[in-house]
Design a protein around this nucleic acid. Structure first.
Lengths: 149, 149
DNA sequence: AAATTATAGTTGCATTTGAAACTAAATAAA
DNA sequence: TTTATTTAGTTTCAAATGCAACTATAATTT
């Protein structure tokens, strides 16, 4: 590869992903705040699977959200502090925490859904469905490529 | 949008970008370390434009790297501490710093190029050129969408 | 059964990051 | 000219993140 091509690469890939990630996170939080909702994108990304799985272990949540256990611990800490979820020790395996939504957590989940939709629309404006699918596939492939490399 | 679709979204977009970004950063640093080079992806992303622009202001670097001025200040601090760059006050406008590579900085730049290429290949493995182009376009569009929203 | 290994989750510490306030210089307005 | 405004960059403080070591429980091995 020529120097120029490498430079081109470094200026596109890392930079673009980095910047898109930052912008999205920011926009989501801003949109939430404007609706009087206090939640980070990370917290939301975990709240969804909690809602979906009903009583997931932290490990399961981590796998679902592609996050390590430390991050999950902390996000659950934050959610628990806000009384949105509770940790319930598993009846059989006492190492496991089952994480379940409180009523306030469920309420927040439903309140945030339209915020998510709004953010989604802002993000996807002008991007054809087909391109977006390719985009997501490429992201998945990149993650896979780097996980078992 | 249905609840399921929103959930689907939140579990793909944010999560995937987040995860891909983390993996890439990690892989780049690991690859660099294995070659005995001590540089973060952020630092590299700024080093490139410094090399290319020859004597860029911090503002220009920020625009080029899609980073805010605070990040640039810190990255330049780090690079300067490692004697890879120096800040030279602009002769005419004393507010501006011109950032230039030292010989060590130029050397590192050339040393890191193959690392970047290696990382690039690991990232892009199995991704058709065409999809990758779409991928980058989508990222650019997302950034644009969120910047002037 | 006792000792070993593996798993789930937490904690502590050091580094990184982000937002807002700040300094210093340049430009524009009065 | 002096005052106000904008611009480039830095600093500070609080919050987020990453890594390694740690606890507690469960599953294996001997």
């Amino acid at each position: 590869m020529t120097k120029e091509a490498s430079l081109q690469f470094h200026m596109s890939m890392g930079m673009l992903i980095n910047s898109a990630h930052r912008s999205m996170t920011k926009r989501f939080v801003t949109n939430a705040m404007e609706s009087g909702l206090d939640i980070s994108l990370d917290q939301w990304m975990v709240l969804g699977p909690i809602w979906q799985l009903e009583s997931a272990s932290q490990k399961e949540l981590g796998e679902m959200c592609l996050k390590d256990k430390i991050s999950i611990t902390r996000i659950i800490d934050a959610l628990e502090k806000k009384n949105l979820v509770v940790r319930v020790p598993d009846q059989i395996d006492h190492r496991i925490n089952r994480v379940v939504l409180t009523n306030a957590g469920k309420q927040l989940f439903y309140d945030v859904l339209p915020i998510m939709e709004k953010t989604r629309e802002e993000v996807r404006k002008d991007i054809p469905e087909q391109d977006f699918e390719i985009f997501k596939n490429v992201l998945s492939t990149i993650i896979k490529n780097l996980d078992d490399g």
